[in-house]
Design a binder for these strands. Structure first.
Lengths: 182, 182, 182, 182
DNA sequence: AACTAACCGAGACGGTACGTCATGTCTTAGG
DNA sequence: CCTAAGACATGACGTACCGTCTCGGTTAGTT
């Protein structure tokens, strides 16, 4: 509903503000002020700050640097290492981490947002990874993708451990064994 | 800091309120009102609603029915199935699910709460599961526990799939393979 | 500036709305909506809701039933009684009372509206009444008109008393004495 | 409900603001800002800006310089001239005129405020004037007071004429005739 | 009959204020 | 002495209107 110009300015404002004051202190009024729009203009398009952050994230994911690509060199193990490295980078980059944590928190209570998150971010990613496993002859590619990414999410979400190179390599190894592909 | 009586009444109030109106509409004023205490009494002990919810959760986890026990019958596969079933029950029970989701959301932005969560809930649980894998001769028991629980968390958090019996069995199978224990 | 059709529809809308929700809740947006015009069309012709109400009142006063006529039967006392009765009816009729009160309130702060009110409604009325006193040989006809209508306005505006027949008769009596005409 | 301190600061703020920007631009937020209080503190005590202005006016009327006294020297005509002069001064003083106009406008639509206005300002004033007429032997003292003040209000409210000395004298004369007291 | 040009409805927009709710601090009664 | 009750300054909420500003889509008038 909002014009392209407005959307762009709102996205910029929201990213600035999350960087400045953090997601918890993000307010509709603050965004409107920073973006130079009226509050009603925001409410016309988004129901909450979380929805705006998610939209900014989506917009970013439609650009080249916003997507985690699944490499395919033939060497599955090497490809998965690259993939996990990229994913970890995304999850821990100072700009994206607060956004991702904010959205992850929000989808715990906002079912509509959760649906959009699943459809527009999660499922495409899982499907892409599964496709790579499929190519490698995995019996249950979707489960393999889950086995790969689940523990990564676990570590990140609960901050239960670092993502050093050794852990990633060993984890990929376990995943390949578990998924019957080597 | 608060008296045992007060704590109990606050815990009860908070559980009632989360059930009634959900975590997002939980407020310090509301809790004080329901618990029949002054606001100051709450602030003296807890810094936020999330902290109160977490405290209520902790209190619960110190009772028998609040803990997920790790069975040890000798049959690893069967034990893990029981464990995962219990875990899933905890994660999806109408009373605990909202609380767990609320705390999970809160620890994304509240580092102090995250630390307490890790130390008092997460690490004991992981350690217990790892011990069971250790008994079964797993090379890296902690990693095995992570491989088991990561994908469960992934499904639950992102609501990306159901927890039917078949999925649990196959998942345990993949975990055992991945962890070199069969 | 607005077409005759538009004016008519706006007048109708405004009268409906004042009846429905009262003057205080009258808004430009509401009028535009009810009249089926754009907001700009309103602003092109009227600066405020009060101005529209006043215009509707004026339009009404240009019709036969919108005017308080000054009777002239030769019997001054009887004529004044009729006049006061008519005036009171106008002031207290369910349709006109809210409009008149709204305009009376508005002219306290809106000087331009006050000027128009004076020139187009008040002065003609006073002049007509004064003419009647003049015919009856009053020394200061305008003052007599003021002496007659002032207390009526006072009662109405401050709601300080009813307009029963007895009061009206006695008041007219006092006015005639005060104006040296009997 | 509000403390004495708060009331005083609010009254001062409101008088300042009416002088600065006029009653029409008076807002609850503006008053709160100027008075250094929260909005809720205002709403706890007063329902509208008009109610605050009225309260400030009342507070003023409880001080010596806020009351129009009715002189009683024995010479009725001279006393009434003094009274009307004082009243006119009150009605046209740069500080009180905007307040009185604002309240007069407000009581057209706010019945509760109108009731308070009648009971606490209007009736005492009328009663005092009537008492003076009573002393002078008027048959209907209340009607006499109305006959005296009605036209004054009429001129002031509709801005239909100046209040010069000559008009006042003649008006008092007419009133005395009309009220049968000379 | 085709073609402007003026007008109008619709409503997005940057704003201001609304009246409410919750925050965290502070004061006050009463048990 | 402690605590419930709640006043207070603050600030955000989500809504309603403000007055200005584009938009298209008639609707007449002019060629």
């Amino acid at each position: 509903m909002a014009s392209k110009r407005t959307r762009a300015r709102v996205h910029e404002a929201v990213l600035d503000l999350v960087a400045d004051v953090g997601f918890t202190r993000l307010t509709m009024e603050g965004i409107a002020g920073r973006a130079g729009t009226g509050k009603q203009t925001l409410y016309r398009t988004w129901p909450s700050t979380a929805a705006i952050v998610f939209d900014a994230l989506l917009a970013r994911s439609e650009t080249p640097e916003g997507t985690v690509s699944v490499p395919d060199t033939g060497d599955l193990e090497a490809d998965l290492l690259l993939l996990v490295e990229e994913t970890v980078q995304e999850l821990t980059s100072p700009t994206t981490e607060p956004l991702l944590r904010a959205v992850t928190a929000a989808i715990q209570t906002d079912l509509e947002l959760a649906r959009q998150y699943r459809e527009r971010l999660l499922e495409p990613q899982i499907a892409a990874v599964a496709r790579r496993f499929d190519l490698a002859g995995a019996a249950e590619p979707a489960a393999a993708a889950e086995l790969l990414l689940g523990p990564v999410l676990h570590r990140w979400l609960l901050r239960s451990g670092d993502f050093d190179r050794e852990w990633m390599e060993r984890h990929i190894n376990r995943t390949l064994l578990g998924a019957h592909v080597s």
